[in-house]
Amino acid sequence: MTWSEMEPLLSQALGETLRMVAWSTVIAVAAGLPVGVLLVLTDRGGLLRNLPVNRALGVVVNVGRSLPFVILMIALLSFTRGIVGTTIGWQAAVVPLSVGAVPFFARLVETAVREVDDGLVEAVRAMGGSTWTVVRKVLLPESLASLLAGATTTVIALIGYSAMAGVVGGGGLGDLALRYGYQRFETGFMWVIVALLVVLVTLVQLAGDLAARSADRRRRGPAPRLRLLRPRTP
């Protein structure tokens, strides 16, 4: 295959992957953030302590997390058809991707929010702050760096899932790699796609790290700068 043959295929597949991942990330963040925060608030010692709600949410999240994505995707076929009207195409793939990513991100949110010092919550309560104030002024800003790191992990996981979604008609880079690399023995083309995926994941990780670092004010000194390809210092 020549580059001029590859190029249109690649750009179309990349566009599909990006659209699938972008939309499902938006939905995962929009739904996972409140679920994750609620998991903390309703737990023992939380501001909205309500153990039945907490346990129920926990079970839903655990079930969502433990189902392998392929199975989730197939199990949701009729649900997807009900929402999008079809089970083919990147729009249809967004549904199972989002459903899979919401509990994933919710757990990451929970972990991030739990790390916020209880003393800060106490301080804001002592000032007369409501639960909503605590969430808005303390829990979310103080955990922002971890939340951004969690969102980065979620995006990368979604890029992986999107390859599977492609196989059942979602399109995207994963689908392209499978069709050309596996079914037509275009190994070279497959490696090009793999390289593209590596570049994509690296860029997402770098952008996520940069965002998380600039949100983190816990260390001394001025706002951190990006250090390319150097391991994070704890």
Binding site: D117, G119, E142, L144, R217
Partner: peptide, 11 residues
């Protein structure tokens, strides 16, 4: 109220 560990928002 003033606290032992200050409880200032780091951000």
């Amino acid at each position: 109220m003033v606290f032992q560990h200050f409880n200032l928002l780091s951000t």
